[in-house]
Design a protein around this nucleic acid. Structure first.
Lengths: 226, 226
DNA sequence: ACCTGAACACCGTTCAAGT
DNA sequence: ACCTGAACACCGTTCAAGT
């Protein structure tokens, strides 16, 4: 942080050349400092000391930017496997890590639900997933759909977290209220189980259970074409 | 359609009183006729011959509107069960129906990924799901998480469809290209399986397989607290 | 008390014009 | 050839003022 530059120069640094990398860098800084709500074209342009039109030389559109941002985020994941750690444990850890990263920015996770991110770090995750599933005995013809299912699940879980402290969207508390107010005539099973049952377990426990459900199902199900 | 009103009166019908129902009705008409992209506050206000501020008397915000719209859409689902049809078949049909409805408006499905819709028709779906799972022998303590998992899966699948013909977002074709261009050194499993394997099976077959994976996993997994 | 015009505070994207 | 100012075509939401 300490430099010999005069303050006036540090406050408005010399304009660096534009590039896809530079834009995503700037987006990343804004994301970390102010959250996803502040990451938008006009803001990034201002940050980079240019007009919004300039960004479109390097980005197709906002979805393109989001995709690049997701991949940048996934770069911090550990995608190594020593082959000693049991495949099932490693898979749990990978999915947990992936979900944890996206949960930091649930609005970003939302865009990952819709598109198949195709950045190199996303492919790293898919690659390791394929290796782990193969180690678990999952057939080649099934592995693709299994990866789809696992990633979709993890991504959707992360996206769901944007409800938290997102103002205006109904909160978890409202859900309990809804369940408690349910009509026993129309929704008997719902009323019988009640809010406690419907939302039972710690979130972590619940997540672990869900992933285990997916894994058992994948291992137990016949080949997709069978 | 045939009325005795003069044309000039039919073209700009008498202003009916505003209400939550009336707003959602108007939104539904626009949704069906022009798609989700045209369903926004200012447009609905214009449609109802008033200013946008008036809508906020009956709607908290856009998320609230989307939630109401989803529930309106789910109203057309068949949520009856004769008790004769095997629970597993009925469950497949319910989830397929739910997904099919949301797939007609994937942008709407996107908002359902983030919020827990709490409308009566959504609760109908959850209710039937609970009954079917109970019939399948799923323990009470597990049923809540199982419903979560099933609905999240179906919703996310529907949301994913917004990639289709959404301009600017990378298409399925690009994904195949990405896979084909993958580096065999960094992503050997990905390259070995190739685009054919990664995207094998007809979409319907794939969806059926995924749901079956979920079901088998749910039935085979121990209680969530166990 | 209920409703709303008008304003506030923004957006993404394009294209003609500049260097 | 590459870049961008300025404009186009919109948004959601609020609040003070009206009836």
């Amino acid at each position: 942080v300490a430099t010999q530059e005069p303050v006036s120069r540090r406050e408005r640094p010399a304009k660096s050349p534009l590039s896809r990398e530079a834009i995503v860098d700037a987006a990343m800084v804004v994301l970390v400092a102010e959250g996803m709500a502040k990451v938008y074209m006009r803001r990034l342009a201002a940050e980079l000391d240019t007009g919004p039109a300039s960004l479109y030389v390097y980005l197709r559109n906002t979805a393109d930017l989001n995709g690049a941002l997701i991949d940048r985020l996934l770069a911090e994941l550990d995608v190594a496997w020593d082959g000693v750690e049991p495949w099932r444990d490693r898979l749990h850890r990978l999915v947990d890590d992936y979900r944890a990263v996206l949960m930091r920015y649930p609005e970003l996770a939302e865009s990952a639900v819709v598109v198949w991110p195709d950045g190199p770090h996303y492919l790293d995750v898919v690659e390791l997933l394929l290796q782990l599933l193969a180690a678990g005995g999952v057939a080649d013809g099934t592995a693709g759909a299994a990866v789809d299912l696992l990633m979709q699940h993890a991504t959707a879980q992360a996206a769901e977290w944007s409800v938290r402290d997102a103002q205006g969207v109904q909160s978890i508390g409202d859900l309990a209220t809804t369940l408690r107010a349910a009509d026993p005539g129309r929704h008997p099973a719902l009323v019988r189980l009640g809010p406690e049952m419907m939302m039972s377990g710690e979130p972590q426990q619940r997540s672990r259970w869900m992933l285990e459900v997916l894994l058992r199902g994948i291992l137990a199900s016949p080949t997709i074409d069978g």
